[in-house]
């Protein structure tokens, strides 16, 4: 229908413009030896139609593998089998193999130059956030100028067979403070134990909200107040914390059940104490800017069996304080 209507209009027009054209060609693009307007339009129309038919109405999508029909049947039998039927425990923690406690320490350095930190766009509550002309900068790559130390690298134990019971003073310790001031989270990367009370505080004279991604924690924190938060689950890799009122505010938190987690200090140093001795421990390393999967920091370090997934292994003797030395992070290990 569209075709007919279009052609009629077009034909009438041609008839008026060139009333007695002597030649007539069935080839649209060679009418009277020149480019015919009508033929050109027609050809364009055909081209559009053919192209759209070829492309179709679906978005082009990456192809994905389908389910393996044979395995589906086999798996379904496994899945519907009555539970507790003496299935071998797969991922149970291995039986403890050692006694005593030990510690690790080390220091991360950055091989390259961090360049100038990007200034953040602060366009709300400027009377507080840029008070006295202070400027806020992107803190994703903090390198100590003199020692080259790389700050805010997270190291945590993946699995341990034993966890040292908390001492009386550790149990009694008051909450850790996760504070924000001048529209900035004071800890760019914050670690805590699951169940340990965290005082999410606001030291600014204006209100904030603290939104921990993946946790459903998103609370209003009125000016000068705080709210107590007890992390109820492990985060896996560190998860982002933002303030929706001031979108430039960003930090990361990591919660671990066993508390075997450290964040490297301004000079790049870190240490984890009270680790179980006598077993092979695997540690996970993370940095915000890491180019590895999920922020995993992969280093070239055969001695520690460092993998591209950012994991290394150590075995500790009782009461040992193992110094991993200086761990240099090459430029290409970090992305943008």
């Amino acid at each position: 229908m569209i075709t007919t209507a279009f052609r009629r209009r077009s034909s009438t027009h041609t008839a008026v413009a060139v009333p007695s054209t002597p030649c007539r060609s069935s080839v649209p693009w060679s009418r009277c030896g020149g480019w015919s307007r009508r033929g050109g339009v027609r050809l364009g129309f055909v081209a559009v139609l053919v192209t759209s038919c070829a492309i179709g109405c679906n978005r082009s999508r990456v192809s994905t593998p389908g389910a393996d029909a044979e395995s589906v049947g086999r798996l379904r039998t496994t899945l519907v089998a009555a539970s507790g039927g003496g299935q071998a425990a797969g991922e149970q923690a291995a039986a403890p193999t050692g006694t005593g406690w030990a510690a690790i320490k080390g220091r991360f350095t950055f091989a390259g130059s961090p360049g100038d930190a990007k200034a953040l766009v602060v366009d709300k509550d400027t009377e507080v956030c840029t008070k006295g002309g202070i400027k806020l900068f992107d803190r994703s790559l903090l390198v100590d100028a003199s020692s080259k130390g790389l700050a805010n690298v997270v190291v945590f134990a993946r699995k341990t067979s034993r966890v040292k019971p908390l001492s009386a003073e550790q149990t009694a310790e008051s909450s850790q403070v996760f504070d924000q001031k001048n529209c900035e989270f004071l800890s760019p990367v914050f670690a805590a134990r699951v169940g340990q009370p965290v005082d999410v505080h606001n030291s600014d004279p204006i209100g904030h909200n603290t939104n921990i991604a993946g946790s459903s924690f998103n609370q209003l924190i009125p000016a000068g107040q705080g709210t107590l938060y007890k992390p109820d689950a492990e985060t896996g890799m560190p998860t982002m914390v933002t303030c929706n009122i001031h979108p430039w505010m960003k930090a990361y938190v990591v919660f671990r059940k066993d508390g075997y987690v450290a964040v490297s200090a301004a000079d790049g140093s870190f240490s984890i104490a009270d680790l179980p001795a006598g077993e092979t421990l695997e540690f996970q390393v993370w940095h915000e800017r890491s180019s590895g999967p999920n922020g995993a920091l992969g280093l070239d370090n055969a001695a520690l069996k460092w993998t591209p997934k950012g994991r290394f292994q150590v075995r500790l003797e009782p009461d040992e304080v193992k110094d991993l030395g200086t761990l240099e992070v090459p430029v290409n290990a970090l992305g943008t």
């Binding site: 994905t64 593998p65 389908g66 389910a67 395995s71 589906v72 049947g73 899945l79």
Partner: peptide, 14 residues
């Protein structure tokens, strides 16, 4: 691709 196939298979079984 193999890992994607495993996810698809497990999901279909489940």
């Amino acid at each position: 691709t193999e890992q994607q196939r495993q996810v698809a298979t497990v999901l279909e079984a489940m």
